[in-house]
Amino acid sequence: MWLESALILIILFGIIILGNNRLSTMIQLLALQSLVLSITPLLIHPSIHAFTMTIVTIVLKVIVMPSLLFWAIRHVSIRREVQPLIGYGKTLLLGGFLMGVAFLISSKLDLPDKGMSNLLVPTAFSLVMIGFLLLVTRFKAITQVIGYLVMENGIFLFALLLLEKTPLLVEMGIFLDIFVGVLVMGIIINHINQEFGSASTVNLTNLRD
């Protein structure tokens, strides 16, 4: 019951991120999503292992990364995604459709569910899809990072399936990777901004030749 509510909350935050155009709200929503996400290990399997993960996740995903992103948008002073590739309404509908696909796929897959919740896998899939959608349809580098992080949240949920199997060290390694990734992204955003005067990835098409 609680686990499912948490999972649905996670999806909801994903949907709202999709339909939003204000960058600061998106980052806040991402932080909220990550907060709910970080509690899920405890809900699935309360143990010290899970507890450590929760702490680490909260620190990294709820505190550090959002602050990094906030720093980035302050630095390049952009407030909203202006021209997405397709409109917000349509992105939402497309998101709904992709979620349908995700739910269908996961109902056909045979995964080690172990009776945790049959919503876990669909949610993870949906998040990956939503993240992809953000990556594909938005131009601002910040939104791209947000999309990437949403996708990562989905992968995190997948990893929860193997919560007891994976040693802590591996997870730590993954977290470090992401952290470094976001850091690099932040720096890149900064540099795009310096070079072109705006933080839109559209400018990168100039690098084609």
Binding site: I8, I15, L92, M99, F103, S106, N118, L119
Partner: peptide
Amino acid sequence: TGAFVLALVGLLIILVK
């Protein structure tokens, strides 16, 4: 559309469960 997607998620959950 947002409201539609919300309800759609509900339907999907029923579908899975």
